[in-house]
Nucleic acid binder design. Structure first.
Lengths: 168, 168
DNA sequence: GAGAGATCCTTGCGTATGCAACCTTCCTGG
DNA sequence: CCAGGAAGGTTGCATACGCAAGGATCTCTC
């Protein structure tokens, strides 16, 4: 009926595969648009913005390196370098952790806070322009709910880090 | 009422921001899981798999470099190098385009087809394990529909490349 | 039919990434 | 008190990426 090489051809249309495909493509498109504009308007990469935002929304404006790594797209080593750069740019400082001398905190500086807060409205405005023509308000809520379920199932560490709400 | 630095603090909870945050986190988690397992079970990166799958589902098993770039996460130069590596691995060949001598095709080799087709069921199985506990069938359909809308709005090039359906 | 400009792909260069190895510090059991 | 092992961070190394520049080809206009 079919050669070995075509036996599993039907899987190319498998619902999980096509859904994940759409998901990945939509992410790629959205990420590219965000990245481009964020860079143009604020000179920051998405990674920087991500780190700074997470610090900004944390009481005390400080987070352990390991927590930060768990919440962002970055690996531990990636985060180390990213914080190196942020520190060189004066937006973040490292601080020793008094209770565990192995660990260290990344602390948002005043300059860092000014920088995120200046970038934030531009970013939100951009997201609004991108999304308001695509999702109606109820669809947006649905989408957020489904995305949350997916994240909780697949990235539980990030989930518990942002119990109340989670921003990018 | 508030200092300059806190004026836009409320934006940290903006619906678009939190939704996109969840979306990005869910993608990161899913991508990490897929990547890890795909590498362990097939020795391929997601990028390779993505390219090979798109070739496999195209009649003639060939696609222009530019089309391939538009459909994947890769930039033009990134695709060039990826195809270099795939060609070195014997999974893909380049072919001249008769109608436009600037262009070239990436063509799936027999070895390449065997490789994707062997990987495909493992991948689908993995996706199933990941997702079946998270989304009910109707939720999956909803999610796919919303993701499609988002992709169409934000990444139109990929959209028209896969009119009928779209796999990862 | 000739030149200006756009398009396709490839390369040079700088940079960001992850993995694995490493050092330091913490913790646990004897 | 003191191994032995686990965990937090940082670095060496190799790799992959994107941007911008470049060479070749197509296309459109006059």
């Amino acid at each position: 009926m079919a050669t070995t090489s075509t036996t599993s051809t039907g899987l190319l249309e498998h619902p999980y595969l096509t859904t994940v495909g759409l998901f990945v493509e939509s992410h790629a498109g959205l990420a590219a648009a965000m990245e481009r504009r964020l860079d143009v308007e604020t000179g920051m990469s998405v990674q920087w913005f991500e780190v700074l935002i997470r610090l900004a929304r944390t009481p005390g404006h400080r987070l352990r390196m390991s927590d930060l790594a768990a919440q962002t797209t970055l690996s531990a080593s990636g985060l180390t370098r990213a914080v190196d750069r942020l520190e060189a740019a004066g937006l973040v400082q490292r601080a020793a952790c008094p209770s565990d001398r192995r660990g260290s905190f990344a602390v948002l500086t005043d300059a860092g806070e000014r920088r995120v807060m200046a970038a934030l409205p531009l970013h939100v405005q951009h997201l609004t322009e991108l999304l308001e023509g695509i999702f109606s308000p109820p669809e947006l809520k649905q989408f957020a709910a489904l995305a949350r379920r997916l994240r909780d199932g697949v990235n539980p560490e990030a989930a518990l880090a942002s119990s109340p709400e989670c921003g990018d």
